[in-house]
Amino acid sequence: MQDAPHNKALRAALDQTAAYGIQPTRSCHLRSPEDGARFVQRQIAGTLLARRLVFHIDGSKRLECDAAGGRLLRFCTYDPQGKVVFSGDFEDLSAAQGADAPLRVFSDSLPRSFLDAKTVSLHTLPMHDAPRTGGISAHHLAKALGLATPPVTPPQWFRTFIEDAKGAILAAAYLEDDLLYPLAGTDQDIDQLAENVAHLVPDIETLTSRATIPEDALIVLGTNNNATPNILFAAHNTSTLIALISPNTHTALTRKWYALRRAD
C-alpha cells in the first residue's frame, strides 16, 4: 500500500506543497519551563512530514529539532548568543548507546533553555533527505520529559467561528490544558489576551474544567471598564476558545455561534 504509485505521487505533492507553502509562525506564552517543554513536544508530535522545527525563546533561536512522522530525529540547542550547546540524533537506534544518552541530554537541557522564558515561537522549515526509520516517538519523548498529555488540534469550528466573526473578534487563542495557542490577532493582541485572561482567572486550568465553562456553551463576560475588552469563552471537548471581542457585538457573536452549532 505504501509503495503504490498514487501514494508516492501524493507524498511528493504534499512534500512539495509543504516545502514551498507558507507556514505561519506559532507562538505560545509560558508560565513555567514545563509549558515550554510541552509546547516543543506537541509540535514534534504534530509534525508528520519531514520538517526542521526552529524554536525561538524570547526572540532568539535556542533549539532546532528535525522531525518527521511525529518523531524526533535530531536536535541542537543553542545558548542566547547562538552558540551550539548540545546536539544529538536518534536516527540510528541500533548503535551501542541507543537513544538513552541523547534523550537524557535533550530532556535535561530543555527545561534549562526555558528557565525564566516568557514566550516561545516556532518557525518551520522544509527538510529534505529525512530518514524513514529511527527517531524517538512523541509518546516516548513525552515520557522522557515528564509530560503525559497527547497533542490536540483545535476543533475546526473554532476557526470557522473566528472567520465568520472577523470584525467582532480582536484576538483569539485556544486553551489546551494550561497553554494558550494563538488563532487570530497580532502578537501584541495575543499578549493582551493572555494578560486579560491572567487578570480574570489566575489559575488558567479552571477554564478547561467543564464546571466553569460548560461543554457546548458560549460565555461572554463584560466589565464596566471601557479599557478592558469583553472576553469570550467557548468549550469543545478538551479545548477552550478564548477571544477578546469588540463592544456591542454580543448579538452578532451569539447569533453566529448558534448558526454554527446548529449546522455542526
Binding site: N196, H199, L200, P214, D216, A217, L218, I219, V220, L221, G222, T223, N224, N225, T228, H250, T254, W257, Y258
Partner: peptide, 10 residues
C-alpha cells in the same frame, strides 16, 4: 476586571 455582565448561550 470583575464581570458586570455575562452571557451564557446554550
Amino acid at each position: 476586571a470583575e464581570p458586570q455582565t455575562a452571557i451564557l448561550a446554550r
